[in-house]
Design a protein around this nucleic acid. Structure first.
Lengths: 246, 246
DNA sequence: AATAAAACATGACAAATGTAATGTTTCCAA
DNA sequence: TTGGAAACATTACATTTGTCATGTTTTATT
């Protein structure tokens, strides 16, 4: 969910820092791999930050100083073209790493913007501490290699879909993906737990908002989906899958 | 060049295996990083193979057993959709690594096809030897992380371009890229040293062959390029750059 | 509850790109 | 050198998607 557990209007200081293990950290494979001792050390070097609507974690072009991990909530990676059009490359979920990549080397700058979708909590760590940790832990380095490899395959698959498929197929593929990655079973379908407007979807599949709206209207008519934004439900995953690959 | 140095019709056994260092190996960053000793060991575990027109290095869906490095020539990475359309994701050049990624883990299969563009020479090494090498050499592991990170950024940039730009802009961007990555200065422009048909270009930017032909015809009329396939020349890099980002 | 802002929706029209059919040129191998 | 394949080319037309304009509904905020 993009909403964190209810709490009084002003947020209390971030949880953690008690003597017991902070909630949520066991969803982070990279940390699980480390020995208890190394993990403690790494956690000591990491800072937790919360972000809300309208904020940025970093922006395209900013210098890259930190390595990041999503702890709670969802984060979107966005790139924009000179004429203001935007495209969302990836929705990061808890456990996802970002800036674990080349943009973190030799004083480069961020190739895209990272912004929270709803309230999120992010762990971060200085680049040099991160590299030091990787050099000292072959297992962690291998995990990062595997993770980056997966991201690369994913990105290439995305490029393929953008290059070869029609707008409705791309949108169907997106919905299938969301259902599988963040879906919650409900009596009448699978609810997507990330708040996603038609505009968001449009940015994710490279079409205009109007086109996304029209296609979603068709999907709704055909009883493949229902609801909007905060309450989007996938009603016929199979048919969507079929459509995505037709 | 995609043509290797002239030789008699039947190819003689691959060069190397003399006592002196094989030609071309100093173009491979990953090997340069290793100590002379480790490099020798790694080279001992690698096999050199040559491929020619019409062959495949591996195909989409094949099990991944080897890690690869391009030594000479160019290799293209291709994915295809169910209905036979193809898209070329990346042209690998000497020094480029492939299957250094997630597809190499836990008995996965290749997410795409690798095929030679003209004659190429490829080094390869069993996956487990590769992983062992990475674990033993933090510098090599860091180099692979940096390399994968670059590939990831590149792939995301490609997705962005596919999502937001028009066909002519994408084609212009491709030509600029080729000129910069494999261009050879000539009196009247920059010759692209990889043989590239209109069909190849179409596959790289996600359009039909006819569209690629039409756009290239326009570019030719406007004196931005000249020639075809084996003799493609970029005549006005600046204007192409401008077009790509307009 | 009132109000403003964001999201959703729809229609008319324009532009970009694909499809199909067909012909010419270039390249390569017998 | 020559015949056949691949590459290049062009036309007419169909389809997809974008653009613009406008209006309604939903959501969030005071």
């Amino acid at each position: 969910m993009s909403k964190l557990p209810k709490k009084s209007p002003k947020q209390p200081p971030a949880e953690q820092s008690g003597s017991d293990v902070p909630v949520g950290l066991n969803q982070i494979p990279l940390l699980q791999i480390l020995s208890a001792q190394d993990r403690q050390k790494v956690l000591g070097e990491m800072t937790e930050t919360r972000y809300g609507k309208g904020q940025y974690i970093f922006r395209e072009g900013d210098p890259t100083e930190y390595f990041h991990i999503v702890k709670e909530g969802s984060v979107k990676c966005v790139k924009s073209s000179l004429d203001g059009k935007e495209c969302t490359l990836k929705v990061l979920m808890p456990g996802d790493l970002f800036c674990c990549d080349a943009s973190a080397f030799d004083g480069a700058s961020h190739p895209g913007t990272a912004q929270p979708m709803g309230d999120v909590s992010v762990l971060r760590m200085k680049n040099d501490a991160y590299f030091k940790m990787l050099r000292a832990n072959p297992d962690a380095a291998m995990e990062v290699i595997r993770y980056l490899g997966n991201r690369l395959n994913e990105a290439q698959e995305k490029a393929k879909v953008l290059a070869l498929d029609r707008a409705d197929q791309r949108l169907a593929a997106l919905l299938v993906n969301l259902a599988e990655r963040s879906g919650i079973k409900e009596p009448n379908g699978i609810r997507v737990s990330v708040r996603l407007t038609r505009q968001d979807m449009a940015n994710m599949v490279g079409v205009t908002t109007e086109t996304a709206i029209r296609i979603m209207a068709r999907f709704k008519k055909d009883r493949l989906v229902s609801g909007t934004a905060a309450r989007l439900v996938i009603r016929d995953l199979l048919k969507l899958k079929l459509l995505a690959s037709t």
